[in-house]
Design a protein around this nucleic acid. Structure first.
Lengths: 122, 122
DNA sequence: GCATCATATGCCGATATCGGCATGCGTCAA
DNA sequence: TTGACGCATGCCGATATCGGCATATGATGC
């Protein structure tokens, strides 16, 4: 939240409209996975994932606002489709940790290695 | 939430203790990045990132509970270090969308391509 | 216009979350 | 043991979140 906004209490800072937050919701992740197979109208999304129509609609809205999903009208229906480009920054951010989950590049990892050895040596 | 648990109202489902949720918080992401450079005691984390000591401690707790961070005691201090292995599943999940942000593998992407062409043809 | 289908939105209750503050607990040194 | 330091925890206020329900909005066809 760039604008100063609180006099007291504060509460959570800048969660909204953030891709990381959008994919933090299990159901929203399910929607994204589902849409990999192709566009779908809201009702179909809801049915296939066992959620209510308003529920699906709300989650799709969040995904739309962060740009992970696009919609287009087809008659009365609204087809929702994946736009995964927004996931790329996330993938890259996490990729910055890639070397830390294999090798021994930081001190903690070394420490963990030590623990393992210590256990084996029991 | 595998266990049925609500009679009314329901509210948010299963956010807690989930890696996706842990990295949804900007400050926690900062902590992870900082710890890439090596272990640090709580106070140092707080100082370097401009947060209060209890604030840092709480975020570190969340990260610890999802296994992204490990701690070990060193005298009075508690050194926190990165354990990035928990990020791997996230990386892989997102990797499942990789082909969707380059090529034209799904219908929406094709639709987007069409839009671009249509614009160029104006 | 009117009825109908498809979707979005508003409201509510329950809960989760975050920051700030004060305080508790654990460890070390004297 | 006592004091000091480092960190964790508890409580609070403000707010965000999610699901369910009812309803508003939008588009279509008659």
């Amino acid at each position: 939240m760039p604008i100063s906004a609180y006099d007291a209490g504060v509460a959570r800072a800048a969660t909204t409209s953030d891709v990381f937050n959008a994919i933090a919701e299990p159901q929203r992740r399910q929607i994204l996975v589902l849409l990999r197979a192709g566009e779908r109208p809201v009702t179909e999304v809801a049915q296939e994932l066992g959620m209510t129509q308003p529920g699906a609609s709300k989650h799709l809205r969040v995904l739309r606002e962060v740009g992970l999903v696009r919609d287009r009208r087809v008659g009365k229906q609204r087809m929702y489709g994946l736009d995964a480009r927004g996931l790329r920054p996330v993938h890259e951010w996490i990729g910055g940790f890639e070397r830390f989950w294999n090798g021994s590049f930081d001190r903690l990892d070394a420490y963990v290695q030590d623990l393992k050895q210590a256990r084996q040596e029991e």
